[in-house]
Amino acid sequence: MKFKAERMIKIREQLGMNKAEAARKLNMSAMGYGRYENGQREPSFQTVCFIASTFNTTSDYLYGLTDDPSPNVITISSSEDPELFSFVNSLQKDKSLEKRLLECFNKLTQQNK
């Protein structure tokens, strides 16, 4: 698999970030990030997965295996959003609560259309 730097650039631009902002968000040096974008360096698989997660896309998209940049998994971190993490955790433990909340969600989203 070959990393498609142009796809990382496209996602970064869609997020409205410049290279320096993207590097900070990924906790890497601007120079290191720039080497990925200009194709001087190939990121490891783990780094591609981290970039995909951080930029809300998939590693398959960044490798050119799919043309759909939409993620199919969402990770919720207890340290980044403890309330949302607790909420989702409660839903996983209580399937009847999950069903009731999904019904409410569907009604609310249908009313907003």
Score class of each variant (00 low, 15 high):
V73R: 08
S78I: 06
N72Y: 11
M1F: 10
L65D: 03
P69M: 12
F87D: 04
Y61T: 06
A5S: 14
E80S: 14
T54V: 15
L26Y: 04
L101D: 02
I9L: 15
E13G: 01
G64E: 04
Y36P: 01
P71G: 09
E13D: 08
Q111T: 03
Q111C: 01
M1N: 03
A5E: 10
F105Q: 12
A30P: 03
P71S: 07
E6V: 06
S86P: 02
S29I: 07
Q46V: 12
R100I: 13
K93V: 14
C104H: 09
I76D: 01
K95R: 09
E42K: 08
Y36K: 01
R35D: 07
L108K: 08
A20P: 02
K19N: 00
T47E: 11
I51S: 00
T109L: 09
E103G: 04
G39I: 08
K25L: 15
E83P: 00
K10G: 06
V88K: 00
T57V: 09
D60W: 10
K93C: 11
M17R: 01
K10R: 13
K95M: 05
F50T: 06
F105N: 12
C104I: 15
S77C: 05
L102C: 04
V88R: 00
S78Q: 14
A30K: 01
F55H: 02
E42C: 00
N27R: 14
P71Y: 09
F105R: 14
N112I: 08
R100F: 10
T66E: 01
K95E: 10
M1Y: 04
A23M: 07
L15Y: 01
N89Q: 13
I76P: 02
K107G: 14
